[in-house]
């Protein structure tokens, strides 16, 4: 009897502690949401105040962002959507093929290629950044979607993930497909790829999130306002001299909104996608 009472008290204490931690985790997101309904000029001069008049809340910022003047923002949104979609489609296509071959075929050089995958996992992107930038300049593809997407197209982490996943697939299926007269490529596309669907989902979310939130590289290669992605565009509004705070808060809310909606539906894939790489998002 005594221990159950003790446990009950303990569990209430834990509940309170966790509640406080959860509040700390959610407070910034909630305050951003709230800020998007408040007067931007007040926020600029006073910062985010804890106490405010609820009557102050209005939809002006949202009206602004959906008006003519907010068009620049939606251009960034479109750029981010196109780039993320491109990265997801191409990087999943290429990386899954590589991971699949590394896991399920015996061929000369396989171990060397796998070793190379592991080695480039260790090379920080930042050291490749300046040469890559020069290559983009001399290839005259600076300030294009392609220049933003290129470094993400065959990500070693994604190759690694697909390889690990494919190791668990039944090889016998490939043999029986061969007997049925299926070509090697047909086996991949028609027989094995459908079995890899859960890994495609996790990697789509992983690569999508990386590319949606990617900042340093787009900042380096994008030059014109029309080509900016969302993070790069929002960062230009973040200057202390900026006068576009109305765009900044609503724009930030609308930038994370689709991610949060997707997260609610595909939580499992988000978690497996985000935790497998441990790579900066």
């Amino acid at each position: 009897m005594d221990t159950t009472k003790k446990e009950k008290i303990l569990s209430i204490i834990i509940l309170i502690c966790m509640g406080i931690m959860a509040f700390i985790a959610l407070f910034p997101i909630l305050s951003l949401l709230l800020a998007s309904f408040r007067s931007s000029s007040v926020l600029m001069s006073e910062g985010m105040t804890l106490i405010f008049d609820p009557a102050e809340l209005n939809l002006n910022n949202y009206e602004f962002i959906f008006s003519e003047e907010g068009m620049g923002y939606w251009r960034w949104y479109l750029n981010s959507l196109i780039i993320s979609a491109g990265v997801i489609v191409f990087s999943l296509f290429f990386s899954s093929m590589v991971g699949y071959a590394l896991a399920l075929y015996e061929f000369k050089g396989r171990n060397i290629i796998f070793l190379l995958v592991l080695v480039i996992l260790m090379i920080p992107f930042e050291i490749l950044m300046l040469p890559l930038y020069q290559m983009m300049v001399s290839g005259q593809i600076i300030d294009t979607y392609l220049s933003v997407m290129l470094p993400l197209l065959v990500a070693p982490v994604v190759v690694f993930f697909f390889r690990q996943y494919c190791l668990g697939l039944p090889k016998e299926l490939m043999d029986s497909a061969r007997i049925d007269g299926c070509s090697e490529y047909g086996i991949f596309f028609k027989v094995m790829a459908p079995l890899m669907l859960p890994s495609f989902a996790a990697m789509a979310i992983f690569q999508g999130l990386i590319s949606w939130n990617n900042f340093l590289w787009p900042l380096v290669v994008l030059r014109s306002n029309d080509m900016f992605t969302l993070p790069v565009g929002l960062a230009t509004l973040l200057t202390p001299y900026g006068s576009n705070y109305d765009l900044l808060f609503t724009g930030s809310v609308l930038a994370i909104l689709p991610i949060i909606i997707l997260f609610i539906f595909f939580q499992r894939y988000f978690i497996s996608g985000l935790t497998m790489g441990g790579v900066k998002g």
């Binding site: 951003l32 900042f215 929002l234 960062a235 930030s252 930038a255 998002g281």
Partner: peptide
């Protein structure tokens, strides 16, 4: 949840 936001946001 915070992991879903970009550093910029």
């Amino acid at each position: 949840m915070p992991a879903l936001t970009s550093v910029i946001v």
